[in-house]
Amino acid sequence: METIRFILRKFFEDKVALVGLVIITALVLVAIFAGVLATHPGDVSTFHPADRLQGPSLAHFFGTDRMGSDIFSRILFGARITITIAVISVGLSVLIGVPIGLLAGYYNGWFSDLLMRVSDIFLAVPQIVLAIAIAQTLGPAIENVILALSLTYWPFWTRLVYAETRACKNETFVEASVALGASPFRVIVLHILPNISSGIIVRTTLGMGSTILTAAVLGFLGLGPPAPSPEWGRTIAESRQYLPNAWWYATFPGLAIFMVVMGFNLLGDGLRDILDPRIRRSKSNDR
């Protein structure tokens, strides 16, 4: 309780993190209440060819697309897709990456080395290329995007957790619980994991931003969920042939992507400071 109050207070002191928090909260709310907030909730799947490519107006805040659907409403529904993709694929990456990192970091030996080499191989190939390759092979569908993203992003968590576990393992309190007779499971899950959790939280927040960006690129390349999905990347891809006249067509989804990615990055950077154990634990480290 105390901790939560402390974190909230910190947020209000750190304006940048607060901006990030507001953007992300807004995104989540929009995704949940898309059905209520959208001015034309039906426009995700219905078309009005008569109204196609109209500029922003009171009826259509962000204008309409080539099918005459309301871009504003489609962006709201797109937020749902974006959130789903980001949450599930980042969640899967964490589930794969963190345990591998913990095990490889805690134990020494060929198995740890093997795990780390495998993650290195994944890291060596540029993320986007790997994701494209996987999505290409599996075909355009939202599940495949999620799979492609999870498979490419888990090594980031492995690397981070591996390094932090290595450092944490040298701390006396870890050695002390081993000396007390604690089992490796106990040491890893109850002592090490909580102590490195702030790094994981920050990495996860930042990871959301980059996953959303990659998902948009996949959508843009036509590897995302198929039409008529309101996925943001796909929308931008569709808009290309109508540029520069229908400027609103690409601008608003683009802005949405930009805002959300920036939101996660600001939040992540803010959390880095807020969760810094030395600030939290208020140790007298300054000298």
């Binding site: 701390e171 006396t172 007298s284 480290n285 300054d286 000298r287």
Partner: peptide
């Protein structure tokens, strides 16, 4: 932090372990 601590007034903490960074 900049002028006083560690320069004009310095501190030998009681618990030297936690005052070093382990990394």
């Amino acid at each position: 932090a900049r002028v006083l601590r560690g320069r004009r007034i310095s501190f030998v903490p009681q618990d030297p372990f936690s005052s070093f960074s382990p990394v």
